[in-house]
Nucleic acid binder design. Structure first.
Lengths: 356, 356
DNA sequence: CTGTTAGCGCGTTCAG
DNA sequence: CTGAACGCGCTAACAG
């Protein structure tokens, strides 16, 4: 029979700085006199399966209730070859869309007792590769990545069997992993249709980062909507820049103003950053925003509703994306080989309250 | 270490991918015929210190260059009782301020070869406690918390204090850990002074989450600025609500409109969420935003500059806060006992371009 | 039903 | 300069 009079010697022996600290399984075993296995069966809820005596269970539960218990995840990971951690590699966590996606992912992780490791790529290949490596080296079980270029996944392939992988936001072709993206083409099409219903004028599209598939899709949607209203030269209304930031938006709008001899009456920007830059440029030319301008942008900002101008925008369904990402991860973690299938999540068009 | 990173870049530049998974130290030892100790000295850059033969070094480096190497962080953590991970517990990662803070923290972690674990508290005690425990159970070396109430830190006391702790954004009294906050009182004072220079009208302050110290400080700054312009009853211009969200802002503004018999000509909101709700309420009463309104809010949104109204806002210095947080963590990780000192980081007032 | 044992891969120690 | 042996705390297989 077990001896369980060791509490005193235990507290003396262990030179712990925190006698109140939660115990390890071994400490509980020693303190209660049962073996680690017995403790583990009880604390992991397998007591019934192994028919642990009720009295034993109660003693152990009482001890845990009083002293607390914390499993050592490093040891657990080492033994199970599994970290219960998910990595998230995104261009920029301060970007509202990615921030929102992070929040949704974190929520889903919490429910599955996973932790979320974050790393930013700044949309550049080298930091991205380092970020991916840094997470893979921690033995993450799953990885979500918004790739900055088509071959970003190359670094992953040697880890294929150890880590589930899903791509997000950037649906580059020929990527051997599932991809979850918004329906950018449909969103752009619907957005432009709504804007065309507002005004007969052609839409000038200020477009950054055209190498990204999400942007190509938006361009395709723009072209389709233009074709529908009989605009035969949509590309004459497209203005491109490579970098997606505020300064580029301002430069591009300044260029548009010079080209057109004035601010276009209706324009669309490929991102909020571009939008902000464009507005800055317009304001610096006119001293203010002419209220007659009709504005469109991808991404959402709650203050859009309060601009003096009529404006249209697209809000992606971050929660829907996160849920789909998680399902893809789960499928791979359950042993399915990763497929290259693409999941397209509808986005939401926001327009002025009284717009058609 | 530096040498290892060089190899990574090289292999990326050549576009070469490792055919198989990277090797562990033991695998390299077996493959090259040397012992694990020797391998470790070479790959951790201690070869010179232990005078490893050059030929041996070259063989090992060649093998690593070809096959790759990844240390098992679980084993490393288990042995070193250290995870090289930092936890971040914030109310909401989608909130622009916290998103920006996360981005800055992630950047600093990257530079120190740490990973960042994120967990959200939703500003509620129970999810917060669970988030903290979830991270502590992973053996994080450092923890940054934006606490939702004064005793949020209590759960830390009962834990093994292997973990450095710093509080952020919420400077509750009597917390036995360093705290980093923005200078909310000064920011509120400066903000209100700027608004008073714009208009002689009193400022109505729509204020949420008044139980938070950051909000108390903002109220104090508001009162000080009111006193300076001879307003003897600033509290008659304060409207309070407990929940900080858009709906509360709308409700509170509706209440203000009813109380005042109209929209106050100058008002200030304690957060962007409140601000958005307030604007919604104003618009639903008038069908639009009267352009004569003078607006103020804490937090920053890039579109504020393009509202028809003259507006004033406060942007916190997220990077400065992150840097200070990191310094506090580093001090504790170097063995210093945590102090209760408070670090106050100045914020930045944004006003209309031509404002005094 | 309960206890014992053998690693997971790394970092450290110590012997050569 | 190199190698062997130990243990971090946990899990799983096996032995009573």
């Amino acid at each position: 029979l077990a001896r369980k009079q060791d509490k005193d010697s235990d507290s003396l022996k262990t030179g712990q700085t925190f006698p109140n600290a939660p115990k390890t399984i071994a400490e509980i075993a020693e303190a209660t006199g049962f073996s680690r296995t017995t403790i583990r069966f009880v604390v992991t809820g397998q007591a019934e399966r192994y028919r642990i005596k009720a009295e034993t269970q109660n003693k152990i539960k009482a001890y845990v209730a009083q002293h607390g218990l914390v499993l050592n995840h490093a040891a657990r990971s080492l033994r199970l070859q599994r970290s219960d951690a998910i990595g998230l590699v995104l261009p920029d966590f301060a970007n509202p869309f990615f921030a929102c996606l992070t929040a949704e992912m974190e929520e889903l992780c919490r429910k599955d007792h996973l932790v979320l490791l974050t790393a930013s790529s700044h949309d550049e290949p080298d930091p991205e590769a380092k970020a991916i490596r840094r997470l893979l080296d921690r033995g993450i079980d799953g990885l979500v990545i918004a790739a900055c270029r088509p071959d970003s996944y190359a670094i992953l392939q040697r880890h294929r069997n150890r880590c589930a992988v899903v791509m997000v936001d950037r649906a580059f072709a020929d990527v051997p992993f599932p991809t979850v993206v918004s329906d950018n083409e449909a969103a752009a099409y619907d957005l432009c249709r709504a804007m065309f219903r507002e005004s007969q004028e052609p839409i000038d599209f200020l477009c950054a980062a055209t190498h990204l598939p999400s942007i190509s899709d938006r361009i395709n949607g723009f072209r389709a909507a233009c074709a529908e209203v009989g605009l035969t030269d949509p590309d004459h209304h497209m203005f491109r820049t490579s970098v997606d930031d505020c300064a580029s938006g301002a430069r591009l709008m300044t260029h548009v103003i010079e080209t057109r001899g004035g601010v276009p009456p209706v324009f669309l920007c490929s991102s909020l950053l571009m939008f902000e830059g464009a507005l800055q440029s317009v304001r610096s030319h006119y001293g203010r925003l002419p209220p007659s301008l009709i504005l469109g942008t991808f991404d959402h900002n709650p203050l859009l509703d309060f601009l003096p101008n009529r404006s249209f925008s697209v809000r992606q369904n971050e929660k829907g994306i996160a849920v789909q990402l998680f399902e893809c991860l789960k499928a791979q973690r359950l042993g399915e080989a990763p497929t290259a299938e693409r999941h397209v999540i509808p986005a939401c068009i926001r327009r002025p309250i009284d717009a058609p």
